[in-house]
Structures are given as structure tokens and as C-alpha cells.
Write a protein that binds this DNA or RNA. Structure first.
Lengths: 113, 113
DNA sequence: CGGTATCCATATTGATACTG
DNA sequence: CAGTATCAATATGGATACCG
């Protein structure tokens, strides 16, 4: 039941598009993060969206979940090799966002580092 | 009234995200197109979405509309300077889509040229 | 040719509360 | 800490018909 796409951009958007997936991926690009860390770093995203998008990103092979099996719970998410292949896309989005914010004098937070 | 964003990627996604905006922009990146051309090149997008997204892209300063004032009607759309600044994003999306399609053996159409 | 208007269906998003 | 469940609001998408 694989979908067909009219062009490569349609496929890319289908997998990594949407309001929050690129943001989550951009954070994970900086290294593994725990669930709660991601919540704090993207406070405008509801918890439901975070959990849902993380599951989709796992299903699409971009993100891996690691349960450290400890009490209290400790779960980490990190990019897979496939996920790391998105680096050029995420970097381009980030750079464009920075430049656009400057041009339009829009206040903006930044990823650390 | 301007929105605030937690990171540059959120801003970028807000302006060029969604299902069809990147696809339209990728086509216009290849040069000016008429309304009907865009419809034929992206047949899976409804006419309503095309008209609506084009209006948004104009409002955001990424696309310019040129009415040739002829009978029958002849209207062209092309990227503004600001729109052309998206080239790295669009290229990265395109390239990743091509690679992903190959890895997953997904059939896919391509932009001409 | 290049659109709009209308109506409707579905998907996405969000607030809040709850659980192991 | 790391989630899930539920309900409600909004956004997005599509079919059809119509207009200068």
C-alpha cells in the first residue's frame, strides 16, 4: 500500500513535514534527548503531539527509542542513521529561519550550541 | 501581533511548511509558471489548495503574481528575491526525497530538467 | 484561462486529567 | 518520569458549481 508521489518534495514533506516533526528532529540532531527534555525545549508543543510525532518518527525509521529500564523511568530518543541523513534539510531550515527572523525583526529563541 | 517562536525551525515551518507550499515553491524555483501549468504539474493538489497557497505565498513575500492582462487570461507566478533565498531548503528537501525514494523503492515522479 | 464560492469530510492540534 | 485517554476546537482537504 505504498503511496505514490508526484515529485521528491512531496515524499519528503509526507515523512518529515508537519508543524512539529522538523522541530523535534532539529533538537535530536544536537544529540539524544529524554522525553522530558524535549517537552521543556519545545514548550509550545502539547505533550500529545510530542508522543504522537515521536511514534511516527520511530515508525518511519528516523528516530530510535531507548528505555533505560530504571526507576524513575528514563527514556532517550536519538536519530537513526536515516534520521542523520536529514542534517542538510534541518540545517537549511534552521539557517533560513534565522535569516528570515533577522529580515523581519521577529523575536526568536535558539537551539543551544 | 507578530508571533513568537521557540526556535528558527518553528518560524521556517510556519512560513513554508504544510503539505503543498514546498511543492509549489520547488516548481517555481525552476522558473515562472502559469496557474494552469502548476495545476497540471501537481495534479494531486486541489485547485482550492493551489489558489489558497499561492495567496499565502504572495502575502508572505515569497511569490509574485503577474497578470499579463490578455484575453484569454494569462497569469504567471514567480519567486521573489525572498523566495529565491529558499533554494537551499528546497534543494535539500528534493535531494532527500530522491534518496529516500531509492532506499525504500518508492515510485516517484520528478520535476523536469 | 484563471480563478471564487459553497458545502462537507477528515485530519491535526490542543487542554485537561489520569496512570504505571 | 514518561507517557495515555478523552473531548473539543481548528485547520486542512476535496467535489462541485459558477464567473469575468
Amino acid at each position: 500500500m505504498s503511496k505514490r508521489y508526484g515529485c521528491p518534495v512531496e515524499l519528503a514533506v509526507d515523512v518529515i513535514g508537519g508543524k512539529w516533526r522538523p522541530v523535534i528532529l532539529a533538537h535530536l540532531k544536537e544529540g539524544a534527548h529524554r522525553y522530558g527534555e524535549l517537552r521543556r525545549r519545545v514548550p509550545d508543543m502539547s505533550e500529545k503531539m510530542l508522543a504522537q510525532r515521536l511514534r511516527e518518527l520511530q515508525a518511519d525509521g528516523l528516530v530510535e527509542r531507548v528505555d533505560r529500564q530504571s526507576r524513575p523511568a528514563h527514556v532517550e530518543y536519538h536519530l537513526t542513521e536515516e534520521g542523520r541523513s536529514l542534517a542538510p534539510v534541518l540545517q537549511a531550515l534552521y539557517d533560513w529561519g534565522v535569516a528570515r527572523a533577522e529580515r523581519s525583526a521577529t523575536p526568536i529563541g535558539h537551539l543551544p550550541r
